[in-house]
């Protein structure tokens, strides 16, 4: 019988829960998304710079969620979680990025948008 089963609250994953991180991630995410929402609604900039701003804010907010809320840190109890997620990142890039790339070339080579009403 492992000690954690007798005293589940002593498990490192429970002990490592940190409410400050949750609050911080909430504040950071909300602020970042509010910012990108405001710039889009105000239509302040040109579309390319808006896109960059949105992507940047989304990246930061996503990082805040991952580190703060999901606690993907280097703490011993969290290492495998972080590692597994990091290993998945290239796959997201391949799935979305390579797909986007090859469909971009496919569009220019096979699609006939002018024939669509």
């Amino acid at each position: 019988m492992s000690s954690y089963e007798e005293e589940p609250l002593s498990h490192p994953e429970v002990r490592d829960l940190d409410v400050r991180l949750s609050v911080a991630s909430f504040v950071a995410t909300a602020a970042l998304l509010t910012f990108s929402f405001m710039v889009v609604v105000r239509d302040a900039w040109s579309i390319p710079s808006l896109s960059i701003a949105i992507a940047l804010m989304a990246g930061l907010a996503a990082a805040a969620q991952l580190i703060g809320a999901l606690q993907l840190t280097l703490a011993p109890s969290r290492r495998w979680f972080t590692a597994c997620f990091l290993l998945c990142i290239p796959l997201y890039m391949l799935t979305v990025g390579l797909t986007a790339w090859m469909f971009a070339t496919l569009y220019t080579r096979t699609m006939m948008p002018h024939l669509m009403p």
Partner: peptide
């Protein structure tokens, strides 16, 4: 894990589908 992962995904959905989408 489940609940925070959904908010993580929502951050991306909000940014890329909604904000980028209206552009």
């Amino acid at each position: 894990l489940f609940w925070f992962f959904q908010s993580f995904v929502w951050v991306l959905v909000f940014s890329f589908t909604y904000l980028r989408g209206v552009l």
